[in-house]
Design a protein around this nucleic acid. Structure first.
Lengths: 200, 200
DNA sequence: ACCTGAACACCGTTCAAGT
DNA sequence: ACCTGAACACCGTTCAAGT
């Protein structure tokens, strides 16, 4: 946080910059201890001193990324209860799925790209990157709530996967026939998922 | 597939049994090459011969789980805890989704029938009937658990919708690329969904 | 074809030792 | 406090060699 003008960046900063750069070059980068340490010109021991665990490092990097990319993220609207904020966030990633005719158009491209036939290696990698990005985003939201004490300790990676599965299911149901009271049942499902995560 | 009576199981079978056993003991087990090979009394090389990649092994195990035929509806197997029974039931409706290539084949027909274009009224009705049937089935399971006092009073219709959304999400993820540890994350998600419902 | 076990190139984490 | 680098206990995959 302290930034001496013109001084050499601290090891901590160098590590975070190195990790962010690597992630910029390849969104699927694994950010291994040795790779990041080497890139930052720092020993693995030093990296571990600042980030006691690999997960701590990845959380710090993600926080940095999403702070700059999504300044108005609803997760930061502390006026609202945690569950409302989490649902608002999930709605954000559900929004591009559209509804009705648009939802089916979205599905058409999704189907052609990833499901129609054995996807090309290129398509596979693209999807994996997308998935990881989503996973990171949800994990970031959970880490914010965790720091506020709104979330019991636990595996946020698993929780994020769970929430994304629910969102995927809702996406599909938006395009499928039926669903008269889509809105109500979607809202109920989102809150059920959020509560499930928030209550451990 | 060939099963010589009384003969020593093939390495392939021993590996699958070992993996399934380990998964039974701990649903979050990572199923590493060496651990599974040791448990099966087989070399890592042999394991790799039958399952050229770690992903291949996990897919085979997953397929094996869903191949096991339940004699009756697992919801009535009162020897097991409620959550295990509910998860077993959900797995039943997830089973026809298949895995890997088969999953994509299933999706192809689903897409052509309901998503490709504005569905015919006939198709719409067919889907609605299917959906209702699923909804009833899940609600029945919940009612059984409710009568045993395993389920707090509440809207079982909403709960069933929630569970079906989760299953839909998992179905989709089976056909999409990626899914490194599909097996573990699918199990975790199913239990999370079951717990969410059982705890209100 | 099936199987072995060593070898390779990676992991994340720990820790005595330095400054 | 900060940093080093070796060491430990794991990974998944490859492969020459056996049967």
């Amino acid at each position: 946080m302290t930034e001496p003008t013109g001084a050499r960046p601290s090891s901590r900063e160098r590590i975070l910059v190195a990790a962010a750069t690597m992630l910029g070059e390849d969104p699927t980068a694994r950010l291994s201890v040795r790779a990041v340490a080497a890139r930052a010109g720092v020993s693995t021991g030093s990296l571990r001193h600042h980030f006691p665990t690999q997960h701590a490092l990845q959380e710090a990097v993600l926080a940095g990324i999403y702070e700059t990319v999504f300044p108005g993220d609803p997760i930061h609207d502390t006026a609202l209860p945690a569950r409302d904020r989490l649902v608002a966030c999930l709605r954000q990633i559900l929004a591009p799925a559209g509804t009705g005719k648009e939802a089916r158009r979205v599905w058409a491209t999704l189907y052609e790209t990833y499901l129609a036939c054995e996807p090309t290696e290129e398509a596979r990698q693209a999807y994996l990157a997308l998935e990881r990005q989503m996973q990171h985003r949800v994990e970031y939201w959970l880490s914010v709530l965790g720091e506020e004490g709104e979330l019991p300790r636990g595996d946020n990676s698993r929780r994020a996967k769970f929430l994304l599965t629910v969102v995927n299911g809702l996406m599909l149901e938006r395009a499928l026939p039926g669903a008269e009271d889509l809105l109500a049942s979607e809202t109920a499902t989102l809150f059920a998922a959020a509560d499930s995560v928030l209550r451990g």
